[in-house]
């Protein structure tokens, strides 16, 4: 019962965090600063989440660096998301064979 209450509280909190701005913000934002800020936010969030966490995502900084390099190179040449992601994992796996 306690577990159910905790899960429900967690789910409700997380839902409200997403829903309130998404559902109730209807008007167009006029402020140039705010529009620019919102335009840059995705790139900023993804970069902050990736660096430096990516180097600790595989249990070895060396294999993670190999995976990161593979992802950067393929992404630079504009390959599709899944190809970049798979190449990163493959590079980690291959680098791991040499450790």
């Amino acid at each position: 019962m306690r577990l159910a209450v905790y899960i429900a509280a967690m789910a409700l909190t997380t839902y409200l965090i997403r829903m309130i701005p998404f559902a109730f913000f209807r008007r167009r934002i006029r402020s140039r600063f705010v529009r620019s800020f919102l335009y840059y936010i995705p790139y900023a969030v993804l970069s902050a989440m990736t660096i430096p966490a990516i180097f600790y995502s595989t249990g070895s900084i060396v294999t993670a660096a190999a995976g990161t390099a593979a992802a950067l190179i393929l992404a630079y040449f504009g390959l599709p998301l899944i190809a970049v992601a798979a190449a990163a994992a493959a590079a980690v796996f291959i680098a791991g064979l040499f450790l």
């Binding site: 995705p42 790139y43 993804l46 970069s47 989440m49 990736t50 966490a53 990516i54 995502s57 595989t58 249990g59 070895s60 294999t63 993670a64 995976g67 990161t68 593979a70 992802a71 950067l72 393929l74 992404a75 630079y76 504009g78 390959l79 599709p80 998301l81 899944i82 190809a83 970049v84 992601a85 798979a86 190449a87 990163a88 994992a89 493959a90 980690v92 796996f93 791991g96 064979l97």
Partner: peptide, 23 residues
């Protein structure tokens, strides 16, 4: 060896999203 390699997949996807527009 496989599960640790899977740990990087999501980050690889983030890189694929940010790098081309940043370029």
């Amino acid at each position: 060896s496989v599960s640790s390699a899977m740990g990087i997949v999501l980050y690889g996807m983030f890189i694929a999203i940010v790098v081309p527009p940043a370029r």
